[in-house]
Design a protein around this nucleic acid. Structure first.
Lengths: 187, 187
DNA sequence: CATTAGCCATACCGGTCGGTATACTTCAAG
DNA sequence: CTTGAAGTATACCGACCGGTATGGCTAATG
């Protein structure tokens, strides 16, 4: 399924540039020509490496997803126990936002732009959210907390709600409040 | 600021058609020509009534926002007391989704597509979320619940998280779980 | 009864879109 | 020493974008 791209130096630069532009300005309004000029690369090089804009979009979403999951796992691993790990996920959210994710969730945004029903980004987005949901449920179960699945959904809603409302709703303490609510759920 | 549009029969049809298309397929990929042909109208009529695509977009967002706020207020008014009213907001969310809002929040989606920093849709989106936040805070205060503002943020996160995760995350019980969490918050 | 607002039909505008074609250079590896 | 992959530069393609122009028809209104 996933075309294994050879990550040449130019390809790396292209993906970095595209990722930044896609996240900041949106996918549709960012043209291939713009990416090329911003990356200091010819349009042909983009198509030699990635084949199509859609492939580039998917590479952007996949890589961003990988980076985010790794960040979450790092925060979970650093927590002393399962209860603390649940809260730590919200610390990772604060870090994620501080490190540039101030325009909401890339998956949610992509979903809004790529409306074609069969677009592969839909499956990736659903997979990411289901992954976090399962991660929450596992941690709650490991902590011996009852109704793990139901509370996991609550945590997911708080997490995603905080990410989007910090931007769209301009609620500056959204992440803090979400973390506090999470702390109460695992208490 | 808001151009008072004369809602002729054609204008009504245009706005209805555009609203449906914008919400289902997204704003950018839906062209003015498509709206015209789907509404059985000439492109010129669209520009005679609305002036620009941007004005049409704003009319779409504003009207949708009005409908939604009215729905929420109706549910609040029907509740026996302030505590029940908070929960009733989540009932209105279930109704809203059942009546067609199965592609997340139009404001959040618009935010993802219209990245221009000064676009008026940003202000409208922020206003909508701040309105719901204030509505929650007022109800909590009226019910004599302490820490009204903090809990209001929690409710907002649950609400928005549920709306987006029911779609993107394919969490089918998102709204139910959010309502249950709300019930616990006001208990 | 003339005027005008509302609408339709068609054609057009410059600009941008994703994607392709051709030809030349650079450089590392067999 | 040659070959091939990676890259540059430029020009081009058809399609579509938001928006405009011209002109004619209809119906309600002063």
């Amino acid at each position: 399924m996933t075309a294994d791209l050879k990550m040449t130096r130019a390809a790396r630069r292209i993906l970095d540039t595209a990722s930044e532009l896609f996240y900041r300005r949106g996918i549709t309004p960012v043209g291939v020509d713009l990416i090329a000029s911003e990356a200091g690369v010819t349009k042909k090089t983009i198509y030699d490496r990635f084949g199509s804009k859609d492939n580039l979009i998917m590479a952007y979403l996949r890589e961003r997803d990988d980076r985010w999951r790794a960040l979450v796992e790092r925060h979970i691993a650093a927590a002393p126990d399962a209860r603390a790990a649940v809260v730590a996920v919200f610390d990772s959210l604060a870090t994620w936002r501080r490190d540039g994710a101030d325009r909401g969730c890339a998956m949610v945004n992509a979903r809004a732009e790529l409306s074609a029903p069969g677009h592969p980004s839909r499956a990736l987005a659903a997979d990411q959210k289901q992954w976090l949901l399962a991660r929450f449920a596992d941690l709650l179960a490991a902590a011996g907390i009852p109704h793990a699945r139901g509370k996991a959904v609550e945590l997911l809603l708080l997490h995603e709600g905080a990410l989007v409302m910090a931007d769209v709703g301009q609620v500056d303490d959204a992440v803090d409040r979400a973390r506090e609510a999470a702390r109460r759920i695992v208490a």
